[in-house]
């Protein structure tokens, strides 16, 4: 824990252009359901290159969010190993930040103090207040510093949550369906912004979504997962350059493939 904190303290001075690679090896996980194990992940092997954008696509309830919790270090896997930048993940660390489906902003804190949370928790806030303002500007929330979460729209709240993650200069950004509850226009706008941020900052990004278009538009690689317990069913490589265009015929083609893997090709 001390070592991890020190590493983070060193990392903050360097420009956050370097992501960390992720190695997920033979990970299986089960929940305890009234005494009986409920398997949710079944022997997942996945390597993510440093700075890569990978999307996990699967039917709802298949266990993809669980995989993210394991990568974040919030829970240890029942079996298997997960390592980030060569180090085994045993606990949460501010170098791997999660943006959840709900913004989960603290209602008693202003937007500014919510975004400052990570720096405050690590005792860096006193010296690095400017990073909070930078993060708020990045997500377009300058001017809303003193607002309380209840005064924000869904999209703005999720932007604040994104700023709260970015302020830590993560080497791995873990996105757990962050746009799932937003209206479609806000969702499209924020997809473009996330792609842009990722290109500028270069962090490794792991995105869980059940939106096929979102996964293909954002990610370089889309991992299709099966029903619970989740196994890796297929891998779709999307080598289209960024910025991408939503109307690209290649995206439509890949979409057909992805839906076929999910068993939905008949309805398409």
């Amino acid at each position: 824990m001390v070592a991890a904190t020190l590493t983070a303290a060193v990392d903050r001075s360097a420009p956050a252009s370097r992501g960390a690679d992720l190695a997920i090896a033979g990970v299986s996980h089960a929940f305890d359901l009234e005494g009986r194990p409920l398997p949710v992940l079944d022997d997942i092997d996945l390597n993510v290159r440093a700075g890569e954008f990978v999307a996990l696509l699967g039917p709802s309830g298949c266990g993809k969010s669980t995989l993210l919790r394991l990568v974040a270090g919030l829970e240890p896997p029942t079996q298997g190993r997960i390592a980030a930048a060569g180090e085994l993940i045993t606990a949460p660390d501010p170098s791997r930040v999660v943006v959840f489906q709900d913004p989960t902003l603290y209602p008693w804190r202003t937007v500014w103090r919510n975004v400052a949370l990570g720096l405050e928790a690590r005792g860096l806030l006193a010296t690095q207040k400017g990073r909070v303002d930078d993060a708020l500007r990045t997500v377009g929330l300058a001017g809303f510093e003193r607002a309380f979460p209840r005064q924000l729209s869904g999209g703005m709240a999720q932007r604040a949550a994104l700023a709260r993650a970015l302020v830590n200069d993560p080497s791995v950004l873990i996105l757990d369906e962050p746009l799932g509850k937003l209206d479609s226009l806000t969702r499209i706008a924020m997809q473009t912004e996330i792609a842009e941020l990722w290109r500028q900052r270069g962090f490794t990004t792991l995105l869980v979504t059940h939106d096929v278009e979102e996964a293909l538009f954002l990610a370089q690689r889309v991992i299709v997962l099966s029903e619970r317990p989740a196994r890796i069913k297929a891998e779709i490589v999307n080598d289209l350059p960024y910025p991408r265009h939503r109307g690209d015929p290649r995206l439509a083609e890949l979409r057909g493939q992805a839906l076929a893997h999910l068993g939905l090709d008949a309805s398409w």
Binding site: R69, G118, A121, N168
Partner: peptide, 21 residues
Amino acid sequence: DKAYYDVARTLGARRSFLIFK
């Protein structure tokens, strides 16, 4: 809300921060 703790933990919060903040 348990999610509040998850957020704080991924941001590097220790036990005392989880209790007091």
